[in-house]
């Protein structure tokens, strides 16, 4: 949360979200992929954006990144709208997904330098060195990107995603396709990123155990609408289930039942 002082000098925490989505709608022809979605993400938190396949998670993330134009509604990041402050906003956010690889025909260091230049990173060699150590990819730097394993690509994607010291990081299923060991290490890295760098993270995943472990808050969406949100442990308690996986099933199937009715 944003720290500040009120008129009497007492420390207060601002509740202004770093990301504010209001009444967001995206229609593809007759299909409403996102249908009046509203939520906010507080600074310094890891927030899980959850929902079944086709719920509208990816469309929402791509609208936040200005890759898809919303039909209506607003997206404000750092209190500013993307339409008028695109360059400034995109300079302070970043994205990583195992489904979006960096160009395989470049060497790892070539990819990192290209993106560092695109973000206008100062002292880019120093920055790449620092992140290469953080993610343990120094030995991979001379390799062709196409020769990396899935786990190595995930670490490279995360390295790319931190080149510009983002204040907001969007992660689309960052541990998908990883074995349990590498997935666990990736989660540890994400926790470190949040703790040491104060990065706000919006996170999608279908692994509810993982979400429960690392997210401060979760947002459930289905058919493009907000279904529920809250702290994972409180949602488990609220729905009277044993874990978040059962809460996910309850929310997703409640919607299925409503449709069948």
């Amino acid at each position: 949360m944003l720290a500040g002082k009120d008129v009497e000098g007492a420390i207060i925490l601002s509740t202004v979200p770093i990301l504010e989505i209001h009444n967001l709608v995206k229609e593809f022809g007759d299909v409403k992929a996102v249908n009046g979605l509203s939520f906010g993400v507080q600074e310094g938190t890891i927030t899980g954006l959850l929902g079944p396949n086709g719920a509208g998670k990816t469309t929402t993330i791509q609208m936040i990144l200005d890759l898809i134009t919303p039909t209506s509604g607003s997206i404000r990041i750092f209190g500013k709208d993307m339409k008028h402050h695109r360059e400034e906003i995109l300079g302070k956010i970043n994205f990583s997904s195992p489904y979006v690889a960096l160009p395989g025909n470049l060497r790892v260091w070539e990819n990192l330098k290209t993106f560092a230049r695109l973000y206008g990173v100062q002292n880019l060699d120093k920055k790449i060195d620092e992140l290469a150590d953080f993610f343990n990819i120094r030995k991979l730097l001379p390799r062709m990107t196409s020769t990396l394993s899935t786990g190595q690509l995930t670490r490279l994607n995360l390295t790319k995603a931190l080149l510009n010291n983002p204040k907001l990081l969007l992660l689309d299923e960052p541990t998908a396709s990883l074995d349990p060991d590498i997935a666990d290490k990736t989660r540890m890295m994400l926790k470190r990123i949040q703790k040491e760098r104060g990065v706000t993270i919006l996170y999608t995943s279908h692994n509810m155990q993982e979400v429960e472990e690392i997210c401060d808050e979760v947002i459930f969406i289905d058919q493009g609408k907000l279904k529920d949100r809250g702290i994972p442990a409180e949602l488990v308690k609220k729905y009277g289930h044993k874990d978040l996986n059962d809460v996910f099933l309850a929310i997703a199937r409640a919607n299925d039942n409503n449709q069948n009715d």
Binding site: L65, L102, L118, G120
Partner: peptide
């Protein structure tokens, strides 16, 4: 190279 997302999420 399916690199559009990486390129156009930069400024």
């Amino acid at each position: 190279e399916r690199n559009f997302l990486n390129v156009f999420v930069t400024p």
